[in-house]
Write a protein that binds this DNA or RNA. Structure first.
Length: 533
DNA sequence: CTAGGGTTAG
């Protein structure tokens, strides 16, 4: 007879590899036939953990008096699949019907479903429940509550209060608080908190949280500085996959592509697995340079997922190679039989490709296709792309029409901003007036939009109007962050600020800019890049 | 059986 504990481990190992329903049924039958002496609960919990979602609940129902251990197993299993209502039902069943007392594990698992639970029950109520049952002192539970507050959209100070009241704070609690701040776009508070953290225990996810937070809030050079510090100060906590994905994003955004190549090398040298995240990050980073290397990374990888496809489509979009972007999309649809379906991001890429390539009609068709054929609700970003597409191609009335029809979501600063930008390119002062009024309502104190309108009048030679707008602006701060862009050529980074004429080849650069401005105002068909030569 | 990090547009 096989000793039952090693047998159990053996069975668990097999169950881990069991992804197919028939195999699972066979194994289950074997267990019933041969393994009566095995602890029933232990085996069943393995089955529950690994079985298919639709088998789980019926299997669970076979237990007349499930214990807390079994409850946590099924709840954890249901959390991994998108099966939120079941979790709450099971929890109710446990507390009401069976009077099992929940444990700290149960709260940690169940609070992962925070947005869903909070919608139905309210944030404070669940916390009160935890306090009432006497689990508010458990550090893991506290951290989960903290995370829940940080994610559910209440004022971030509430989460900070939970953090401050904790008696024991682990590195996980610090990480949770930092990412809470960065999600709330309070990246400077995150940086302050990062520096307050005692150096003893900074691990890789902790470093990653601040690097990611900086990237997500546009602090690209700070993100890269934190990365460099991690390499020096991190000791054994060397950059891992999570780190390189964040750093690749920062490097791609800031055009530091040589550094990006080094990271690619770092991934290989350190044997970091090129998972779908890293692959998509590389595709995106290389795509900022040119799309060839992205394509190679894509072709060579066996870890391609939807995000990688999206990243490749975006690369082509970025370079205005709209037909190739569409071709990638079609290839993706052909592979759709393998279970791959485009999502909202895919269509942002496609719409963007159409914008950069001037394919107005195709863009409109993609927008309709997204809603009609794929049942994707248009997000504000999709409307933004559509307005940009129409606006840039000079169809200002149609762009305006889209904006005025928008109800849910209602147009935001980005939408009006891109409409204003289109007005500037196509010299439509009338519509620009309207857009600026809207923008002034939305972000009072930002004189940048008004300044843009004044400049537009200036460019058109309408100096009286320009002075009128300037005078109206005089009251408020016309402060606008100086625009800056940069490009890396060879090993040198060239910086450009607004109205900056310090570059040695500034005359040529401005000549090309003027040419591009004229070109955007013309029909796309009548313009050829050769005219720039 | 439990808590933290990661890609995508303007």
């Amino acid at each position: 007879m096989i000793p039952s504990c090693s047998f159990n481990r053996h069975v668990s190992a097999i169950l881990d590899k069991c992804s197919n329903l028939n195999h699972l049924k066979q194994l289950h039958a074997h267990l019933i036939r041969w393994a009566r002496h095995i602890h029933f609960y232990a085996l069943s919990s393995s089955l529950l953990r690994h079985s298919e979602p639709r088998l789980r609940t019926p299997l669970f129902d076979k237990f007349p008096t499930p214990n807390i251990y079994l409850y946590t197993v099924i709840v954890a299993a249901c959390t991994r699949a998108p099966d939120h209502t079941v979790v709450v039902l099971i929890y109710h069943d446990m507390v009401r019907e069976n009077w099992s007392r929940p444990n700290e594990y149960m709260f940690s698992i169940i609070l992962k479903l925070w947005p869903e639970v909070a919608r139905d029950y309210g944030v404070e109520m669940v916390q009160a429940h935890i306090v009432k049952l006497g689990f508010c002192g458990y550090p893991v539970v506290q951290t989960t509550v903290l995370d829940a507050y940080a994610r559910c959209g209440v004022e971030i100070g509430v989460a900070r209060k939970v953090f401050d009241e904790m008696l024991e704070r682990s590195v996980v609690s610090w990480t949770t608080m930092i990412s809470g701040y960065t999600r709330a776009r309070r990246v400077w508070d995150a940086i302050l908190l990062f520096e307050e953290m005692p150096e003893g225990i900074r691990d890789a996810p902790f470093w990653n949280s601040i690097i990611a937070g900086c990237v997500q809030n546009g602090l690209l050079s700070e993100a890269i500085e934190f990365f460099k510090r991690m390499v020096v100060e991190g000791g054994v906590n060397r950059p891992n996959q999570g780190t390189v994905v964040c750093v690749l994003s920062a490097l791609g955004h800031s055009g530091m592509l040589q550094f990006g190549r080094c990271i690619h090398g770092y991934i290989y040298r350190n044997g970091l697995s090129l998972d779908s995240f890293a692959v998509s990050g590389l595709i995106d980073m290389y795509g900022k340079l040119g799309v060839l290397k992205s394509r190679i990374v894509f072709e060579k990888s066996d870890q391609i997922n939807l995000t990688s496809w999206n990243a490749l489509i975006n690369c082509y979009a970025l370079h205005g190679r709209c037909h190739e972007a569409v071709a990638v999309f079609q290839e993706m649809l052909r592979r759709g039989r393998e279970g791959l379906k485009p999502d909202a991001i895919t269509f942002i890429g496609l719409l963007n490709a159409c914008t950069h390539g001037g394919l107005v009609e195709e863009g409109r068709r993609f927008f309709e296709m997204m809603v009609r054929d794929f049942g994707i609700e248009p997000r504000i970003e999709h409307y933004g792309c559509l307005v940009d597409l129409l606006g840039r191609s000079g169809k200002l009335e149609e762009a305006m029409d889209v904006v005025s029809r928008m109800r849910e979501p209602s147009p935001d600063e980005v939408i009006w901003g891109s409409l204003l930008n289109a007005c500037r390119v196509h010299r439509r002062a009338d519509l620009a007036e309207f857009a600026v009024r809207k923008l002034a309502e939305m972000s009072p104190g930002n004189g940048g939009y008004g300044a843009m309108l004044a400049n537009l009048y200036g460019e058109m030679g309408k100096w009286d109007e320009a002075w009128r707008v300037r005078a109206a602006l005089a009251g408020e701060s016309a402060y606008k962050a100086a625009g800056c862009s940069w490009i890396e050529i060879g090993s040198q980074v060239h910086n450009f600020y607004s109205v900056d004429r310090s570059h040695p080849r500034t005359e040529e650069i401005y000549a090309v800019l003027r040419c591009l401005g004229d070109a955007s105002r013309m029909q796309h068909t009548s313009w050829r890049p050769q005219q720039l030569q």
